[in-house]
Structure formats: C-alpha cells, structure tokens
Amino acid sequence: MMRQTRLNIRWRLTIWNALAFAFILVAFGIGVYQLLRQAHFDMLDKSLKNRLVTLEESLQEGSSVEDAIRDWVGKFGEHSDYFAFVCDGLQNTVGATATLNQVDINRLLPNLINDYGGTAHDSAFGRIRYASREVQSHGQPLRIYVLAELEHLDEELLLVRRTFLFAIPPALVLSAALSYLLAVRALSPVEKLRLKTDSISATDLHERIAIANPNDEIGHLTATINSLLARLDESFDEIKRFTADASHELRTPIAIIRSEAEMGLHNDADHSRTNKRLSSIVEECGRLTNLTSQLLALSRAESSINKSNMKPISIDRLLTEVVEALEPLA
C-alpha cells in the first residue's frame, strides 16, 4: 500500500485561505450581480409604469387611441427600445406605435400571458419586458401594453459577468500567494522553536528556550517544551546518581570476593579455612545478586513500572552482616 503524502501546514493554510477567499469572492460577485440586475429591472419597470400611466390617462381623458399614442410618443420621444400598442376586448389591435406592425403584435400577444406584466421572449425582438393594464375609454374596455427590449440591458449584465469572470481568477492567485507568505511568516516562530529544540542534546538539557511572548500560542508551546526539558534534566541527573551509587555499591562485594579467592589460592592446605572462604564467596555472590535485584527494583520504581514493597529490617543484624562481610579486608 502506498503511503499517502500529506501537505505541510503552510500549504494547507494557503489552500484553506484561498478556498475561503474564493467562496467569499464568488458569493460577493453573485450578490453584486443580483443586486445590479434587480436594480436595472426595477428602473426599467418604473419607466414602463410611468409610460403606461401616461397612456392610460390620455385614454381616460377621452382621447382617441391614435391621439393618445401620438401624445405618448411626443412626450417620451421615439425610442427604439420602447413601444406600445392597445387592444380591445377581442384582442384586436386598435392602435400601436410606428415601430410595431400587425404581424409583430399577433406574434407578441400569445407570449404576454401575465395581466400586469413581466418578461417574455419573442423571435424577432428577443427578450422583452412589458407592463399591461386594462382601462375604459369611451365606454369600451381596452388593454394597454407597453414594452421594452432587454437587449441593451442583457449586454450590460453580460459585461458585468465577464468582468467578474476575468477578475476573479487573478484575484484568487494573488490571494493564494499572499496567504502563503502570511503562512510562512506566521509559522516562522515555530520553525525557530523546532531548530532550537533540535539543537539541545543530553549534555545541555539545562538550557531553556527564550519565550518572546508568554501570552500567545507559541509562548505556551515554548513553556511546555521548557517544562519537558526540566523533567528530562532531572531524570538524567537521577540516572547519573543511580549509576554512581550502583558502581560504589558493587565495588565492595567484588573486592571481598577477589580477596577471599586470592587467600584461598595461597592456603590450599587448610581445608576448613578454604571452605569458609568459599562460603564467603558464595555469600558475597548472593549479596551481589540481591544488590542487583534491588537496583533493578529501584530503577523500576523510579520509572513507575513497579512499586517495591517496603519491609522493616533489623539494624543489629544489618551491622553484624556488614562486619562479617568486611572482616576479610581487615
């Protein structure tokens, strides 16, 4: 199985920041686009409503459809994006601006299904926005339609979309580069801390790392490492003392064994004394074994591996054993 390689913290921070910035930037772009689009449609609907009300007032005042449309065109001007027409109750056209003919109106009417207005699509005009209202003129019900082409508005919105589309990728690249630089700068104290910790060996455990700011996360980490170094330094000192004590304790039994053996070699004739010395050697070997076991138990107790059972001892008996053990060296 191949081992999965994980990215280091610098690259992970860079990717996270870039993704977060991308999300914010895209959400901001979509929000701005929707607000801009809605603002354009609100302005267009307001313009359509004003034109519709003007035409409605002319018809309600008793003007003929032709005169009302002529006055409407005269007030707002001949605009290629706006046009209007009026139908009777049977959907027959009774008047229209010069930009519309009967063929256009017959093609448009099936698409204008909303009684109050909305957005529709026409094969000739493309997308259109319209407003509609029913009025009474000379006792006859009429329906007014005021329309506007959305071609120019769609072109403006397309330009906005393209602007965001071309602006967002460079912004993301720039944000990723800045995020990487910030990550490197933010993690530089951690790298310095790593190098300083790596330089401390068993011979200089007494050294401590300087804390630049004890109130931030790096300061807390440095304090933790210093505490760890203090515990290691204390443990190493205990090991040194343990080694020195063990060497000292083992030196005396070894000297006794050597002395007894040498004396036994020079006095082979006296079997009783030889047996006594050999017994002493065996006894000292037992003491060495016991001492080794005690040192091992002490070592385990220091490392919290095993808790030795403490038992009371007799001082008189201990002193007697010490005198007997040291007698051959006298």
Rank of each mutant, 00 (worst) to 15 (best):
C87M: 11
E207M: 12
I30H: 07
G31Q: 11
S63E: 06
D88C: 03
A176P: 01
G95M: 07
L195E: 09
G31S: 08
I254W: 12
Y33P: 01
D88A: 09
N101C: 10
G29T: 04
A244G: 13
V32Y: 11
R273W: 11
A39E: 06
L35Q: 11
A269W: 10
L228K: 08
K276H: 15
N309G: 04
Q38T: 13
C285R: 15
I218K: 04
N114A: 07
G62C: 01
T203D: 14
H40G: 09
D154I: 00
D81Q: 14
A255T: 07
E134R: 13
L265F: 05
E238T: 05
L109P: 13
I15K: 11
A330F: 09
A186F: 02
Q136S: 08
L109D: 11
D237L: 00
H40W: 01
L25I: 06
A68M: 03
D270E: 00
H121K: 12
Y116P: 03
S63T: 04
P328W: 12
V322G: 15
L90I: 06
L36V: 02
T320N: 15
T197E: 00
A177P: 04
E327S: 13
M2V: 09
V103S: 15
A131T: 13
N17Q: 07
F76I: 03
D316G: 11
R3F: 14
G29D: 06
I225G: 04
T99A: 11
F164A: 08
Q102V: 06
S64A: 07
G219R: 04
L182R: 05
D204I: 13
A230Q: 14
